[in-house]
Design a protein around this nucleic acid. Structure first.
Lengths: 234, 234
DNA sequence: TTTTAAATTATTGTCAACAATAATGCTTTC
DNA sequence: GAAAGCATTATTGTTGACAATAATTTAAAA
């Protein structure tokens, strides 16, 4: 069976649904899904019209998108949808390696036993999902983020959690979607996740951090290869 | 002599001096210096009046301050100047340890020889400044940030640089100013800086990261003690 | 032709008024 | 005297118009 896996992990859905907030969410999805293509010029009045609101709240939405780096403002040349190049993705994976490594260390120190058990169950679900052949690629990918999200929460470090969840994961999601990556690594990733969970269960901070960092730098090597291949074919 | 040390490191001063930008800078200083006390309620119309601008640009400034965590927005209760508690500072130092550790590693890999030489000169200046007795406490502290800033730049990682410089350092500055910390550690810090610079010069990534992490977690232990003592005396 | 300058247009920055909403204090009822 | 509901007030959210500025086009001169 496996029904549906408790996928994704949308952040603060509790905020009041102000116009600015809704515009922010909509535009964010549009960018991540590629409906607003990379490098597209952003014109406030056009977008305001498109979303049926005035420029005030739309402006606020744009500024927030700029903060999470989905939109880039070039001082005297207006703003554009971000263009994900290899350089930027490398920066992101390096930052992620540092922060998630630390998160894994803290999780090994602080995660309650009950949560560790629950984490293990999550991995069982992922295993079940993987054996149910392909087509589920999407869910497997989101499942991956679920795992990492739990570690970030367990770190009990608000700053790390917010930055991973609010910014880095978004950009990684966007990169995955738009480069149509096939999760051939699902099996490998799962077993690495298991190792990490085991290190946390043993309260081995050092090992948990080490394994997480390897896991992420390994992922970056794959992503880099895909990006390079794409670039050559142009 | 030592004249004045090339202190601080203000970021993107190149942005056009729009009203929102100026308000952002002013309020930021006011918060960091404590002129706007921690926990102060922020009322848009009041502040707009105070700075002689309308609510539009002021709103933008507030949102940006919220992003760098100098202002906290409690959904249905208005926004307030952040209150630095031990929990938050711990989060910041943990994140900083992870990111600056990574930055030191990357710097050891990527920093040009000429920059390494220049870094060494900077430390000479700091040494000279330290021997010129007290009163210079302020400059010594800012000098500390200069060193860390250079490492962040040398990492060639934009994300890490922006987050350290734009957010984490600001909060640390604020914490220092307002808790009136005495830089008794100047000598210790300097020699740790020297060790780190040496590791970078030898291109020893592993050691550079390790030393940087120790340096920062050591700093946190001191700061934590100060914060705890202050809390007890209330 | 190429370059420069002027004028036009497109776009962002700013404002003041209005609307909606949440917090506060008051009255009324039990 | 306490609690609940209502009205008032304070504050934020939203809007459309206006101002300032940067990009673009057009025309003139070399």
């Amino acid at each position: 069976m496996s029904e549906t896996i408790p996928v994704s992990t949308t952040e603060d859905a509790l905020e009041p649904p102000t116009l600015a907030r809704r515009a922010f969410d909509s535009i964010k999805s549009d960018i991540i899904d590629g409906e607003l293509a990379q490098g597209t010029k952003i014109v406030e009045s056009d977008l305001a019209l498109k979303y049926g609101i005035s420029r005030g709240p739309l402006r606020e939405a744009i500024h927030r998108l700029e903060q999470i780096k989905l939109i880039v403002r070039i001082p005297h040349a207006g703003s554009r949808v971000v263009t994900l190049d290899a350089r930027m993705m490398q920066d992101i994976y390096e930052a992620r390696e540092a922060l998630e490594g630390m998160a894994a260390r803290l999780a090994a120190r602080l995660m309650p036993d009950s949560e560790i058990a629950s984490l293990s169950e999550l991995l069982d679900q992922h295993e079940a999902a993987i054996s149910e052949t392909e087509g589920k690629a999407y869910f497997q990918r989101e499942g991956d983020i679920d795992f990492h999200y739990r570690i970030a929460v367990a770190s009990q470090n608000q700053w790390i959690l917010e930055n991973l969840n609010g910014e880095l994961y978004q950009l990684i999601r966007m990169c995955r979607r738009q480069s149509g990556q096939i999760p051939s690594r699902a099996q490998t990733a799962l077993s690495q996740h298991r190792q990490i969970a085991a290190a946390i269960a043993q309260r081995d901070e050092e090992l948990a951090e080490l394994l997480m960092r390897r896991h992420i730098s390994g992922a970056w090597k794959i992503v880099r290869k895909i990006l390079e291949d794409q670039h050559e074919s142009n």
